[in-house]
Every structure is written in structure tokens, then in C-alpha cells.
């Protein structure tokens, strides 16, 4: 067991981890931040995406010890300071971009990373960017629409809600 310290959602945290402890486990079990989900064991589903120093990372593929000292942001840190939903989160609700909610944290974190780099992505760019995030519920329609809407684009012409 070694001690690891990092910043999570703006707060300094530390905990004892084994060398094999994944960041996803550290967040979920160590810190009780269960918004980060684990949907697979082959780094394919993207339910576990968080930001590490601003970059999207599948938290099931990195060891907690490897991100010592980093700044980590999870879904719990995505709302506005007053607790209201951020523009992106609000767009997911407005456009029904989630059903069971299990893929949602990863979708939001991945999409936020896209919008940070590409403020007005095309439909194709959104779909391509989300290639590492699986959703079984929505057929992706409303997720793509929500991300485009969050970027300020008019999505009213997209077939149906």
C-alpha cells in the first residue's frame, strides 16, 4: 500500500492504494465518487471517463498511483458552482440524451473534452469523437443532438427530438 494524493474536483484528496488499484476503483471505493461507472473490463465502453489534467481518460485503464499529483475531474464536479446543471448537462436533459443514465457520466465527460477542443463540432465529429463511449439505450440520436446543442448550434432541423 502506498499513499497517493491528488486533486479531485478541486479538492485535495489522498488515500492508501495498492499498486494495482485502478483510478476508477480509487474514485468509486476510495472516495465514494460513484458517479464514475465501470461498464467493461476491456477499456471499451467509456462509462468510466474522467478528466486528468483536462484530458479525457478512461479511469479503468490507469492506476491511481500513476496520477498522483494530478488534477482529476469527475461527473460530480461538472455542475456549475451554484449546483445548477452546466450548459452541457442541461443540453443532455433538454434533448433527452440519457435513459438509464449508466453511460451518461462518461458521455458527458467525453463530450465536454470534445467541446473544449472543438467548440462547434459537426455531427460527424461528435459521432467520431464518441466512438469510445457505448450507449445501449438511446441509439445515440439525442446524445449527438445534445452535444451539438450545447455548442450553441441550432439542432431544431434534426429529425424529431
Amino acid at each position: 500500500m502506498t499513499k497517493v494524493s491528488m486533486t479531485v474536483n478541486g479538492k485535495a484528496v489522498s488515500g492508501e492504494v495498492e499498486g494495482r488499484t485502478l483510478l476508477s476503483s480509487f474514485l468509486r471505493e476510495g472516495l465514494g465518487l460513484t458517479g464514475t461507472h465501470v461498464g467493461c473490463d476491456t477499456s471499451q465502453c467509456g462509462a468510466c471517463v474522467v478528466h486528468v489534467d483536462g484530458k479525457p481518460v478512461k479511469s479503468c485503464t490507469v492506476f491511481a498511483a500513476d496520477v498522483a499529483g494530478a488534477s482529476v475531474k469527475t461527473i460530480e464536479g461538472m455542475a456549475n458552482a451554484d449546483g445548477s446543471l452546466s450548459v452541457l448537462q442541461q443540453a443532455f436533459q433538454d434533448h433527452h440524451g440519457l435513459q438509464c443514465g449508466f453511460c451518461t457520466p462518461g458521455m458527458v465527460m467525453s463530450s465536454a473534452a470534445l467541446l473544449a477542443e472543438n467548440p462547434k463540432p459537426t455531427e460527424h465529429e461528435v459521432r467520431h469523437h464518441l466512438e469510445g463511449n457505448i450507449c445501449r439505450c438511446t441509439g445515440y440520436h439525442n446524445i449527438v443532438k445534445a452535444v451539438m446543442a450545447a455548442s450553441g448550434q441550432d439542432v431544431s432541423a434534426v429529425a424529431a427530438e
Binding site: 460513484t34 458517479g35 460530480e76 440519457l98 443514465g101 458527458v108
Partner: peptide
């Protein structure tokens, strides 16, 4: 949606 979008769903 609000709980799911803020990581407060409880699975």
C-alpha cells in the same frame, strides 16, 4: 436526469 447527470444516481 438531474441525478444521473450529476453522478448522484445510485446503482
Amino acid at each position: 436526469d438531474v441525478r444521473f447527470l450529476t453522478g448522484r444516481g445510485v446503482y
